[in-house]
Computed example of a mutant assay.
Amino acid sequence: MTAKPRTGILLLNMGGPSTLDEVHSFLFRLFTDRDLMRLPWQQRLAPWIARRRTPAIKEQYRQIGGGSPILKWTNFQGERMAALLDEKCPESAPHKAYVAFRYAAPLTETAMGQIMQDGVQRVVAFTQYPQYSCSTTGSSMNELYRQQQKLDPEGKVRWSVIDRWPTHAGLIQALAERVQAKLDEYPVDERHKAVILFSAHSLPMSIVTRGDSYPIEVSATAEAVMARLNHSNPYRVVWQSKVGPLPWLGPAPDTALKGLAKQGHRNVVLVPIAFTSDHIETLFELDKEYGHLAQELGIDGFKRAEALNGSSTFIRAMADVVSEHLAKGESISTQFKMRCFLCPNEQCATTRNFFAGNKFPTSPATNKAG
């Protein structure tokens, strides 16, 4: 019989539809999320946008195998992370990983139901977005608070939060290994000429200018990876997946590729730096759209680094992040306490105040394990 978990780790992510039939509901939840975007007449407009975009997005998922692999990889990473934690932190074992996706199954309410059913009283909400944004981790945390109020109004579960980890040594090492693996595919005399483009999901400039920390955290990750690689190659950060006509953070990958081709560069490594597993934005957008564009532009040395997926270095990093967090005994980080300067959403304050209210004394045993 499996032992009752003593500590839960709730892995937070956007998620993706596992089947083509889930595409519409995924898009509907995404476009109705007011933490992610605020549109005029959103409750009316969002369903129309979701219906309109569903056929094209279904075709993209069809081209990558019929659904997103993000749940497969998140389960894989979580199970192995929990096993490592049982070894590293026996005083808080057994550990169990739960998955809470924001827009696809398993949703936050499903994960909360599993936690309550298992009777777990200590849970770490662990974002799988290494770099914080109010539109990603912030949205997931607001939804977690709402479901906590609905499903656990008595507060039986004690929560703490890992809200960002952009420069954690293990994460940086895992990313550096992915980049180096692609650099090693070039002939030795060509390797140093490759331009490394770190690609992260873009943000509307309205979110950036209100004080979101995401751009600087993504840049910090990129710089740390290149430091680990001894700054062996030139690099830049690019911003993918813009939607709609409003201004978004740039430059986009296509702009960068066109500029590099014009300057005579023929070797380019595109690296997903803000995604912890492959999904539609890597398998379709980076591989198919930008891979095809690179070939058209004459960048015949185009390569795309694999996302972290089953990297043992990354999974060890996940376990290290959690064990270090448990050793600190903190409920939320100093950074999570502060909202964007021009935050339009009072829910963010309510969420932060709730999770800050959980107290965890640091024990000598936990310090030793960490």
Results as ranks from 00 to 15, higher is better:
8 G>T: 06
11 L>Q: 10
12 L>W: 09
26 F>S: 09
29 R>Y: 02
29 R>A: 07
31 F>H: 05
32 T>M: 09
34 R>K: 13
35 D>H: 08
38 R>M: 04
39 L>H: 01
43 Q>C: 00
43 Q>W: 10
47 P>Y: 06
48 W>K: 10
49 I>G: 02
51 R>S: 12
52 R>A: 08
52 R>N: 05
58 K>R: 10
62 R>Y: 01
66 G>M: 06
68 S>C: 09
70 I>W: 04
73 W>E: 08
76 F>P: 09
87 E>Y: 07
87 E>H: 14
88 K>M: 15
88 K>N: 11
95 H>K: 09
97 A>L: 14
98 Y>D: 08
99 V>N: 11
100 A>C: 13
104 A>T: 02
105 A>S: 13
110 T>L: 12
121 Q>V: 08
124 V>E: 07
127 T>Q: 12
127 T>M: 12
131 Q>S: 15
132 Y>Q: 11
136 T>F: 06
138 G>C: 10
142 N>R: 14
147 Q>K: 11
150 K>I: 06
151 L>W: 11
151 L>C: 08
155 G>K: 01
155 G>E: 03
158 R>M: 11
162 I>A: 06
165 W>A: 13
166 P>N: 11
169 A>N: 12
170 G>M: 09
172 I>Y: 11
173 Q>V: 03
177 E>K: 10
182 K>W: 00
182 K>A: 02
186 Y>A: 04
195 V>P: 00
195 V>I: 07
197 L>I: 01
197 L>T: 00
201 H>S: 07
201 H>F: 02
204 P>F: 04
207 I>Y: 00
211 G>M: 02
223 E>H: 09
228 R>T: 11
228 R>D: 10
228 R>W: 13
236 R>P: 00
238 V>E: 08
239 W>Q: 11
245 P>L: 12
257 L>P: 00
261 A>T: 00
263 Q>T: 05
274 A>D: 03
279 H>G: 04
281 E>I: 04
281 E>D: 07
282 T>D: 02
284 F>A: 07
286 L>Q: 06
286 L>F: 12
287 D>T: 08
290 Y>G: 01
296 E>A: 05
301 G>N: 03
302 F>H: 01
305 A>K: 01
307 A>R: 03
321 V>I: 15
333 S>A: 14
336 F>D: 09
339 R>C: 12
340 C>G: 08
342 L>A: 15
344 P>E: 09
350 T>N: 13
350 T>I: 14
354 F>P: 07
355 F>W: 05
356 A>M: 04
360 F>Y: 12
363 S>A: 08
367 N>F: 01
